[in-house]
Nucleic acid binder design. Sequence first.
DNA 1: CCCGATAGCCTCACGCCGACGAGAAGGAGT
DNA 2: ACTCCTTCTCGTCGGCGTGAGGCTATCGGG
Lengths: 237, 237
Amino acid sequence: MRGNLFAVAVDLVVLTVRRDQLCVLLVKRGERPYESHWSLPGGFVQADEDLGDTAARELAAQTGAATQGAVQGHLEQLAGYAAPGRDPRGRVLSVGYLALLPDLPDPEGPASGSAAFLPVEDVYGLAFDHDRILADGVERARAKLEYTTLAAAFCPAEFTVSDLRRVYEAVWRTEIDPRNFQRKVTSTPGFLIPTATRVTGGRGRPPQLFRRGEATTLHPPMLREPTREPANGALAH
Amino acid sequence: MRGNLFAVAVDLVVLTVRRDQLCVLLVKRGERPYESHWSLPGGFVQADEDLGDTAARELAAQTGAATQGAVQGHLEQLAGYAAPGRDPRGRVLSVGYLALLPDLPDPEGPASGSAAFLPVEDVYGLAFDHDRILADGVERARAKLEYTTLAAAFCPAEFTVSDLRRVYEAVWRTEIDPRNFQRKVTSTPGFLIPTATRVTGGRGRPPQLFRRGEATTLHPPMLREPTREPANGALAH
DNA sequence: CCCGATAGCCTCACGCCGACGAGAAGGAGT
DNA sequence: ACTCCTTCTCGTCGGCGTGAGGCTATCGGG
C-alpha cells in the first residue's frame, strides 16, 4: 500500500442564529501553530471512529450535552481539505462538518472564555484554511435552505412563522415578505405542525406556535435571488 | 499531534451517457483484497498533491490524455469515507470524486480489458464501500442536473437539443417532452450557444447544433418529480 | 409521391409567487 | 375607554413558468 500517511481531523462549522445574525462557533487556539488565533472547533479522528462519530463527539464536547439528546439540530459532512502545507505540522487532512443548531439558552459552553459564537460577517483570518471551510459551510447552509426544511434546525422545539422567517433573513441576508412567506411555509405539507398553544406577552397579535414536521424537502423550492456563484469544480479550469 | 494515521486515497465516480444509458467507469482489481472484483478507479494521494490533483491525475490515467485538454468534462469532490474496517488492509480514508465526461469515441482506454463503462443499473457488489460512493455520486449528478447546466458536460463539444434531452432522460430515467424541454433550455440565457452548422444525414428535420454557454446555474431550476430521498444527516438519528 | 420521424414554433390552462390590501388580535399611551 | 401601533393571518390580483398539446418545416425511405 503506497502513499503517504495523513493525520485526519474533523473541523466543525457550527452555525446558529443569534439576535437575527448568522453566527459561527469559534475557539481560540491555546497552542501552536496559530496560537491565540480563532479557529473552527475540531479534533482528530480516533481509532475505531468513523468521521461522523468524531464530528458528533466534538460537537457534544463543544456545545455541552444539552444539545445531545435533542431532536433538533443537524449535522452533515461538507468536504475534505488536504492541500499540502495547510498545516505546518505536517500532512493533515481535515474533513469539514456543518452543524446547524438553535440558539443555546446558556450563552457559552463549558470551555469558558475561549469559545464564542461570532457573526460570520465579522470573521476573517482564522487559523489554517478555516476561512475557506467556513465559507463552504455558510454557502452550503444558504443553498440548503432553498430546497429543504433545514431552517427549522435553527429554531427551538416550538417556534413561530416569524422565527422561521428571521432565520431565512439572517442566513440569506435578505428581507422576505412576511405574508408570502407565511403562505409558502404553511401550505407546504409536512413542514410545520401547529400546536395548541399561542405566544402571549409580545407586541401585536399572538402568533401560532409550530413544531417541525416530517418533510425534509421543499417542492417547489424557495428560491433566493440568483447570486453570482461560480461553479465549484471544472476540468481545465 | 494525536490521532491515528491514515492512508488517503481518491476514488473516482466517472459517469458518462452511452447508448442512452448512464454508465460508470469500473476497473477489475488485479490484486488483493477484492481481487478480480469490480471497483471504482482510484489511487493514493502522493506527496505534495492536493486531492483535486490526485483526482485529475487518476482521471487522465484512466481515460487517456484525450480528455485532458478538452474544455468539456467536470470534476468535483463528493465526500470523505473513513469507516473503520472499510479497507481490510488498515485505516484508509477515501475521498470520492465525481467526474462527468462525454462518451469517449474510442471505447476503452489504455488499460485493455480490465476497465469498462457499465450501466449503473447493473452494478452491484463493488469492492470496499464503492457501492455507497457510486450511489452518492449518481445522486449528486441527478441533483445537479436540476439547477446547473452540467448536463452539457456529458455532451461533446457540439451537440443538439435532443442530445441534451437524452442526457437528462438517461440520468433521471424519465421521459421529457421534447417541445417543452427545447423551450426551457433555449430560453435560458447562456446555456446554449447556437452554431452555424446543422446536422445532416439523420432522420427528420436537421437539428441545430449548439455549444456550451457561460451559464453554470439554472434559474429557475428544472425540477424532476419529487422522489422520496431521506435527509443525509441528522443529529439523534 | 406520400408517409413517418424529428425539429422547432405556437397557444392555452393551471399553479406558484411577488406585490399589496385588509381584517384580527394583542399591548401601550392618553 | 379610546386611539394608535404592532404583528399575525387571510385574500386578491397579475405575471411568469411549465405541462399539455396543436401545427408546420424538413429530412429519409418505401
